[in-house]
Design a protein around this nucleic acid. Sequence first.
DNA 1: TATTGTTATACTCTATAACTATA
DNA 2: TATAGTTATAGAGTATAACAATA
Lengths: 163, 163
Amino acid sequence: MSNPPLSHNDSGSSDVDVLDALIRTAHYVKREFETRLSSMDIPAYLTGPRLRLLLAVSEAGQIRMSDLAAIMGIKAITVTQFVDALEKEHLLVRMPDPKDRRATLVKLTDAAPPLVEQARAAAKRVKEKLLEPLPPEMRSQLLDILSRLADFKNVCIFETKES
Amino acid sequence: MSNPPLSHNDSGSSDVDVLDALIRTAHYVKREFETRLSSMDIPAYLTGPRLRLLLAVSEAGQIRMSDLAAIMGIKAITVTQFVDALEKEHLLVRMPDPKDRRATLVKLTDAAPPLVEQARAAAKRVKEKLLEPLPPEMRSQLLDILSRLADFKNVCIFETKES
DNA sequence: TATTGTTATACTCTATAACTATA
DNA sequence: TATAGTTATAGAGTATAACAATA
């Protein structure tokens, strides 16, 4: 066996590994989240990102696809694909925006709300389970730390609709 | 000390959103990491996961593919695909394991070390940049918190550090 | 029978580029 | 000219299932 040189701990190997840990943990959490969700009545096609989009639509009532792209931090084409997938499952529908004929509004179908509610509740239970090992003060510490790493101030467009 | 402007305690909306924040932040960090890395001389095919595998091989010297799967927390087939990609770029090679003829050992090619070192250094610089907004004590807090969410005790087969 | 790695296949997420319709 | 959304295409990451060789 070779002895690995473990002396680069001084100038920040561990400082830097925290990012790896972040990505790895997030990946683990994401997978756990989706696995547990689909083991709970929630159909497998309702993945994390799609559910997030669906919930955004649900909160907004009606929303333009370009706004969805903005609040989710993804490209328009990706929204198109999520909407395609969810429309195929009859969870949401497209409508022309009467104010701007280039734009498309998206809203839930009449059939969607029960599943959306079920998914929201299941997601919440799963998240609570995953967060269990974390005492409350660590949760807010984590939130604080994360917000310093990346500030997602653009996420809350929901309250500001006036027009 | 500022009071966190959390809307409050119960029924848990904020309790639960910290997981979303985690996933979203990790996703942001990951994308930033890869974008900045490929804007630095590092070829685009050397993505985060592939680089991680390459570094694992580099540290191990020779390593079985099944061990790579174990320490990276991915399936054997995924290792196969990473190794395929990196072998195509002449960064690593497969060798039969003389101890077990079912197994395959992987090691760096002679050509790999310069690029590996360059990539390791670039990755470190990028990570330091991304971590800049985080004071040192928050970095260790974060590491602590993450380790409670998911314990990756299996990750360090490399360092036989005393404890 | 169990394990190692592979082929074949598939799906999700994400994107760029080129395009249409509209503003 | 610029914006909204789409088609076509691509690539990365990940996986399951079936299989061959070996243990």
